[in-house]
Amino acid sequence: MIKSMTGFGKSQLQLPTKKITIEIKSLNSKNLDINARIPSQYREKELEMRKLISATLERGKVDFGLYLEITGDENATKINEPIVSDYIKQLASFYKEGDRGDLLKMAIRMPDALKTVREEVDEDEFNQIIKGLKTALSKIDAYRKDEGKVLEEDFKNRITIIENLLKEVIKIDPERIEVVKERLRKAVEDLKEEVDENRFEQELIYYLEKFDITEEKVRLSNHLDYFTKTLNSKDSNGKKLGFIGQEIGREINTIGSKSNYAPMQQLVVQMKDELEKIKEQLLNIL
Rank of each mutant, 00 (worst) to 15 (best):
M1W: 07
T6N: 13
G7E: 11
F8S: 07
G9F: 12
Q12N: 13
L13Y: 08
T21V: 12
I24L: 14
N28Y: 07
S29L: 08
L32F: 05
I34H: 09
N35F: 14
N35H: 14
R37Y: 11
Q41T: 07
Y42R: 02
E44G: 09
R50E: 12
S54I: 03
L57S: 02
L57M: 11
K61L: 11
F64H: 05
G72Q: 05
G72D: 10
E74C: 04
N75V: 08
T77L: 14
T77P: 02
K78G: 00
I79R: 08
I83V: 15
Y87A: 08
I88N: 05
L91F: 12
Y95H: 11
K96A: 12
E97A: 09
L103I: 11
A113I: 05
K115N: 06
K115R: 11
T116A: 03
R118I: 15
E120S: 14
N127G: 14
I129A: 06
I129Q: 04
L133M: 11
S138R: 06
K139N: 10
I140N: 05
D141K: 07
A142Q: 15
Y143T: 04
R144W: 09
D154V: 13
D154T: 14
K167V: 10
E168T: 05
E175M: 13
E175A: 11
R176S: 09
I177A: 14
K181E: 09
R183D: 06
R183Y: 04
R183C: 04
A187L: 12
E189F: 08
D190Q: 15
D190C: 03
E193P: 01
E194G: 00
E197Y: 08
E197S: 03
N198P: 00
F200S: 02
E201F: 10
L204D: 01
F211Y: 06
K217Y: 01
L220D: 02
L220E: 01
L224Q: 02
Y226H: 08
D235A: 10
S236R: 03
L241K: 08
G245C: 02
Q246E: 07
E247Y: 01
I248F: 01
E251T: 01
N253E: 03
S257P: 00
N260T: 00
Y261M: 00
Y261A: 00
A262K: 00
A262L: 11
V268Q: 01
Q270N: 11
L275K: 03
E276M: 01
I278A: 02
